[in-house]
Computed example of a mutant assay.
Amino acid sequence: MPLVPALMFIALVVAVVGSLGAPLITSVAGEFEVSPAAAQWTLTAPLLVGAVATPVLSRLGTGPRRRQVILATLAIVVAGSLARSSLLG
């Protein structure tokens, strides 16, 4: 059953990518002149958004408007990526 190894791999990748931001907290705090506690929210906020968005999008994605949900989600991800690149660039 190839599903279990694929899910394990995805979980591992998410864990690694999620931990890569931890060393950047001091850089974010210095760049934006905020406390390290406030900079910690740059890691926590995406996790909270993901925890809320996952069941909502899952529920919407199983309905009759699956294609629209996928396209809207991709549009939001692209807009967020463009906003982030313009802030960092």
Rank of each mutant, 00 (worst) to 15 (best):
F9E: 03
T42M: 09
A53N: 07
A11P: 00
T42C: 08
P46I: 07
S19G: 08
R65Q: 14
M8I: 05
S35A: 13
L87A: 12
S81P: 04
W41C: 09
L57I: 04
P23K: 00
L88K: 15
A72D: 11
L43M: 14
F9N: 01
V49H: 10
I25Q: 06
V56C: 02
E33R: 15
V52D: 02
L87I: 14
A51V: 08
P55Y: 05
V17A: 13
W41G: 07
E33H: 15
L12W: 05
R59C: 11
L7M: 05
P46A: 04
S19R: 07
I76R: 12
A6P: 01
S27T: 11
L43R: 07
V77A: 15
A11T: 01
A38L: 11
M1D: 07
R67G: 10
L57S: 00
G80K: 06
A53I: 07
P2T: 15
Q68N: 15
S58K: 10
V52Y: 06
V4T: 10
M1T: 05
A75Q: 08
T44L: 05
L3G: 06
V69C: 09
A83D: 09
Q68E: 14
P64M: 04
R66F: 01
I70Y: 11
L24E: 09
A45Y: 02
P5K: 02
F9W: 04
G89D: 04
V34F: 04
L88G: 12
S35P: 01
L7S: 08
T54H: 08
V13H: 00
G63D: 06
F32H: 10
F9I: 12
A29H: 04
P23M: 03
L74C: 11
A11V: 00
W41V: 08
L7K: 12
L87Y: 06
A83H: 11
G50V: 10
S85K: 12
G30L: 02
P5D: 03
P23C: 05
A22F: 08
T54M: 12
L57C: 03
